[in-house]
Every structure is written in C-alpha cells, then in structure tokens.
Write a protein that binds this DNA or RNA. Structure first.
Lengths: 198, 198
DNA sequence: CAGCATACCAAACAACTGTTTGTTTTGGGA
DNA sequence: TCCCAAAACAAACAGTTGTTTGGTATGCTG
C-alpha cells in the first residue's frame, strides 16, 4: 500500500514532478500558520499550480499532512541519530540529543516544526497515524534518558516527559538569534544534572 | 475603555442577560477544538441563540476570544494565589504553585485550558493583548521561582522556562484519571530539587 | 403604566473552504 | 516518431465561514 493514495503508476514518475515543491510549500505553511489556517489554495499558489492539481498527488488535505508529518519525523530522527550513536558520558550524550532536537524544531526546517506544532486532532481521519509517528520518535528520545546513571527509584518517565515538554514548548517563546539551541539544551540539562539544593 | 466592544450601556444590563452562557460555551469549544476550529454557530448553538446575536455582545470573534482568554488568566491566577501566598519551605511552595497551575489547565475549567491551548497568532488583530495577558500571569509564576534558595549563578530564567514548558506541554499527553495534578507536580519539582548525579 | 434601551431574532451577504470532473499538455519508453 | 500515461489545467460544486442589517420582543426605570 503506497503512502500516498494515487492511481498506482504503471510506469516511473516523470522528472518534472512537482511533488517535492508541494511538500515544501505545505510544510512552510503548516509550520507557521498551522494546519487549519492553511488552505489548499495557499499551498497550490506557493507551488505554482492550481488547487485541484494537488489532488493528483494526494487524496485529501489530511493525507498531505501525513506526508509532511512523516517527513518531519524522519528529519528529526535523522538529526538526533548521530548524537544518540556516540558513546561517552551519558549526560553529555543527552545534552547533544536535546540540542539536535531543538535545532530541528526551532531552526533547521519547516518539517520538524510541523511535528511539534500540529495537533493530531486537527486532522481527525488520520489522527491515529500522526500519533503513531510521534510516538515512534519519542521512543527514540527515550533511549537518551534510559542511558543515564540515575539514583535508583528515579522516575525516568517523568524525566522524559518533563524534558521533552520543556523542549517542545520552547517553540512558543524562542526567538532565533538570541540564543542557540546548543546553549539552551546545555542550560536545561544542567538544571537537571546539577543539584539545586545544597 | 470597556473590555468588550459594545454600545456603551446608558442603563444597567438586564438580568436575563445570556453573556455568561456565551462565554462558557465559547470557552468549552475553544478548549477542546481550538479557536480556529470553532465557529460562531457552534457557540451560538450551545448558548441557545442565533449566530448574529453574538454580535450584540462582541464586535468580532477575536474580541470574544479576548474575553475568554482574560477570564482564563484571571482564574489561573486565582487558583495559584493561595499557594503563592503561604510561607514556609520555598520548594514546597513551588510544588503547590505547580499543582494549582496544572489543576487549572488540566481539569478545573475550560477557561484555563484556553490560555495554554490557543496561540495568540491565531487571532492576529488581538494577538498583542493575548500575549500581554499571558505575560502577566508568567510574572506571577516567576515569584515562586524567585523565592527558591538556589546556588549562586543558577539560571533562574531557564528554570522558569523549563518548568513552565513542562507543565504546559502536559496538556498534550495528560489523560485525566491516571494521575493527579498534585502528584505530577511533585514528580516534576523533585526532579529539579533532588540531585540526579551522585 | 408608559417609554426606552437592552437583548435578541430572522435572513441574508460575500468570501472562502476542500474537493470533483472533464479536458489538455507533455515527457519518456517503444 | 508514435503513443500512452503522468501531470497539470480550467472551471465549477456544495457547504461553511464571519459578519451585517433591519426588525421585534421584553425587562427595567420613571
């Protein structure tokens, strides 16, 4: 079953295919206006085509969202992967993972921002797919927390939720230029790592 | 200047006024469908009146949002105030403030949820007002962090952003019944307070 | 009880929404 | 070069959106 619902091609796709343009345009709008506030005409216009033409590539607006969302998850995972792979101090590793995560959803590309910004419920028909995609990434993130040498009885689930929440919510207040994702990640991890009560 | 734009009343409002009904209905929809996904017809229907009638009380949908949002901030502040007022261990105080904050935006009322859920940009004309309201509350929250006995050089701003982010993001994954706001607040504050590296 | 502003109804408006349908262009394999 | 599917156009559809306008009922004040 193809990810994109279209008349299954008997031959190869053509070279002048504008599908990537559509995805980029959609990601751009979804990222900074939100899903519901973006019209198919917005997207078509930015991609240099007519609204109806989008339906050759996607069966519906929601299916288009799924495609963008999936690409977003793919990119965030790819951004985090190198940091996750390296060994050494687990706290250092966590910090790098957070930095990569932040960079992906604050600066790098529109696709990453979509994953954090768009609520699955906004697209009821495909909501379950979106949640599954998000969960898929969160399992990745969990590995960074799992590697930490923590005192016994420490609530690792709460730690993960807290950290991920702080990172994702930063999209609300973060303004590019003032502080890098790198240093922000450092600050957050330090607050957890270093004892605040002496 | 009245908060609500309407023909400034020469006499007192009438007793059968359905304005509170409108606000409640709007808060309900804004809280669980979002601002953009709620129509004036949704609200009017739930309040038992016709769409056009809403415009007697509010000049526009955005003004209606401002009213709901302001009430939301008022309620959160009111919920947090008692915890903030008590003296004793500052960490204990912070935990109670967080618990009250969480309760307000996860369970207590729709108004509180609106403040966290609705993005100011969704209502461009009044976005500045919404941001001002949100900032107003965050200053309140800051006091709980300011009272903490922390090691010198501790980044209190980052601490505030991290904690508030974690709390607000919980709206994304929290499911009522499984865990109380109280215990969740305890977990979060503990992670900050207790040293994680031995 | 008279008068009047309050509070709402009733009906429409233009603009915009996602989507469909039939038709046309065009690139690439035979 | 022929041909067919890929990819897009052109134009419309029905439904929904926020909002406006003019009329009407009704609670409160004097």
């Amino acid at each position: 079953m193809p990810a994109v619902a279209r008349p299954s091609p008997a031959t190869a796709p053509r070279a002048d295919n504008r599908l990537p343009l559509i995805l980029d345009a959609a990601a751009g709008f979804f990222a900074d206006k939100g899903y519901g506030y973006t019209s198919m005409r917005d997207i078509a216009g930015a991609a240099g085509m007519l609204p109806g033409s989008l339906y050759y590539h996607f069966a519906s607006k929601e299916e288009l969202l799924v495609a963008v969302y999936a690409e977003g998850v793919r990119r965030i995972k790819a951004a985090v992967a190198p940091a996750l792979a390296r060994d050494g101090d687990p706290w250092e590793r966590l910090e790098q993972v957070c930095a990569a995560h932040l960079a992906a959803l604050l600066e790098d590309s529109d696709y990453g921002q979509v994953v954090v910004r768009v609520r699955p419920d906004d697209a009821p028909v495909v909501a379950a797919q979106l949640v599954a995609l998000r969960d898929e990434y969160e399992r990745t993130f969990s590995q960074a927390v799992a590697g930490l040498p923590l005192p016994p009885r420490t609530d690792r689930r709460a730690l993960r939720l807290m950290l991920l929440g702080a990172l994702n919510w930063s999209q609300t207040w973060y303004r590019t230029g003032k502080e890098s994702p790198q240093s922000l990640a450092r600050r957050f991890v330090r607050l957890l790592r270093d004892p605040l009560e002496s």
